[in-house]
Design a protein around this nucleic acid. Structure first.
Lengths: 173, 173
DNA sequence: AAAATACGTCAATAGTGCTGACGTATTTTT
DNA sequence: AAAAATACGTCAGCACTATTGACGTATTTT
């Protein structure tokens, strides 16, 4: 049964195969390690990565409603509900009835939720800062441009809605 | 119960908080969209991201044994076992008894496994290529250096073992 | 008054990961 | 040769995130 499906391929995939392996692999390792910092903190609260994402965007767009949050995260409301419920029950997030449309629930962080969001962002920011220590402004621009160009246009629309992000800050093209 | 835990914070976290929000958020969206390309292909096979990772590294380091694979992926053997079993049962990966140490199982892709690995890497490589279209060599170097600097030193050791990656290719510092 | 919308929730399922425990084949150490 | 360590596989149970489908309620729009 070991070789029923043909012989083993003994050569490695390499750059000759026309694949940008270097960046594919760097991206994988970099993102894994990038998320490991907040993961450790979250574990103390019994939270996971989903809580982090919700908390982050509630802090970045206070007052957004549930539909808007689902749109940013691109998950279903059933997935969101448990995570959001836990964040509300633990006093990190508040729901306030929409002033114009009372069907809506506006989401806000509490002071506690703000504090946790910053604690989660801090090690990530430090990692970025350290990684950029010998980087000049032009290089940083190239890095941001690259990351932005890796994003789908739908996601890009979400990014441009975040405060402090100059819409159309795309220097390329 | 809505405001038992204090008042809503109505201001957004911004760069003033000393956090590099731009890159944190770009990294999140970029990685999510980067993985969405292979995810669609994997769904046709009933596979998930874990299968992708195993298949990728088996193709990049043919003949590696189970312990080495666990070391690269940083998961437990129990987590690996289901995923690896499925890849073997579907004829994408072969296990061959280690020649020197017969306790070991060397992992190789089949032609089918190689083909799928390339099919999964291709859209990611194209996305990278497109993102870099207006990028010169120096900028590309800065991007690779940044990604590499984002990685933990333990992970870096793994990267340097991959074929085609000049060990110590770190230009920084 | 009827239809659409925003949201919450119940139920079932899938994929990935974990810890702990145990068994077997094989190699290394004593 | 016997004992210990190693490499691997597997069983069992659990947690987190995400999915689809269905249904209910309050509210707004038509």
């Amino acid at each position: 049964m070991n070789d029923r499906n043909g012989k083993p391929v003994r050569t490695a995939i390499t750059a000759e195969d026309g694949i940008d392996l270097a960046i594919i692999e760097l991206f994988f390792f970099a993102y894994r390690d990038f998320t490991s910092d907040p993961d450790e903190i979250l574990a103390d609260y019994g939270f996971g990565r989903a809580h982090h994402r919700v908390l982050h965007f509630v802090n970045r767009m206070p007052g957004l409603n549930v539909a808007e949050l689902l749109d940013v995260l691109k998950i279903t409301k059933q997935s969101l509900s448990r995570v959001l419920k836990q964040l509300i029950d633990t006093g990190h997030v508040l729901q306030i009835q929409g002033p114009r449309d009372r069907r809506q629930r506006e989401l806000y962080p509490t002071a506690k939720g703000r504090s946790l969001a910053l604690a989660l962002a801090r090690p990530q920011s430090r990692r970025i800062h350290d990684a950029l220590q010998a980087t000049d402004a032009a290089e940083r621009g190239a890095i941001e441009m690259f990351l932005k160009a890796m994003v789908n246009s739908e996601s890009l629309a979400q990014i441009d809605k975040l405060p402090g992000n100059l819409p159309g800050g795309d220097h390329g093209d």
